[in-house]
Design a protein around this nucleic acid. Structure first.
Lengths: 140, 140
DNA sequence: CCTACATCCTCTAGCGACTAGAGGTGCAAG
DNA sequence: CTTGCACCTCTAGTCGCTAGAGGATGTAGG
């Protein structure tokens, strides 16, 4: 049998040991069997699950979304419309976030460029922060 | 005198009432005087401060960075190098975040496009999540 | 067999930046 | 005078972990 310890599972999956225990606590990862000395003993199925979770987290999916995706994966006869919807929602979020970060970037660039490199009372950085009206775009 | 209640300060600054109290708790906003009935009573200086804080939060500065920026603002003879450094650091963060979100966006687009719109067992969305190797870029 | 040491166990508390709710008081209009 | 909103304090919850205490287990070398 190819059972491994939590430390080894962490190494192979790239998910930290306390995080693996946390995922078990919140019911995202099935409880593994235990060794005689009460140590967790993981099987390949757990590792697959961890890889899935890690990948989804890297893509910014929330835990609850991942829970749904895992349920979908477990029931392969279901329509994948829900998975599609979750991914699309995430895509829209990411697109919005990029747009708003780009606006921020422009604002910050302007702030930094116009910094007087002198004393605070002439500093554009502080000034712009104090007065939203001095921004490039009134809404960001 | 132009003293206002916390509710009015919230309306004028766009910062929610509990958040204003929270800023007071953590020492970001000076304690206002109180009315006879123990209600907070804000002056224009508080509103300016709140506007500054709100604007900085919108630009994604952390509370501790804002604390530093506020200290700088209070001492206008200081060099603005620190303010400059804080803004530059934030700019770099934002640029990195944009880059990584763009990579995510590409990944998600591919996932969504290749969704079979059928059953889960043929679904690319689930499949890609389960297998990082199917990503556009091995590192995202 | 003993010792050292890494790794494991459970449990609680902390992070940042709020947000929600309970239970009570103040205040202004009808 | 009562209704009803806005205010007060306090505690606890959110998300997704992370850190640390205090103890048990497992393994490698002597």
């Amino acid at each position: 049998m190819r059972k491994i310890t939590i430390g080894e599972a962490a190494r192979q999956s790239g998910v930290k040991v306390p995080t693996i225990r946390y995922y078990e606590d919140i019911g995202l990862l099935a409880k593994p069997s235990r060794s005689e000395g009460n140590q967790r003993s993981y099987e390949p199925a757990h590792l697959k699950r961890l890889a899935f979770i890690r990948h989804a987290r890297e893509l910014g999916f929330e835990i609850e979304a991942i829970r749904t995706l895992l349920h979908l994966q477990d029931d392969p006869h279901q329509s994948c419309a829900s998975a599609d919807a979750i991914a699309k929602a995430r895509l829209i979020e990411v697109e919005q976030r990029i747009r708003s970060l780009k606006a921020l970037k422009a604002e910050l660039e302007q702030m930094v460029e116009s910094c007087c490199h002198g004393r605070v009372d002439q500093c554009r950085v502080i000034e712009v922060l104090a007065d939203h009206g001095k921004c490039l775009h009134p809404r960001h």
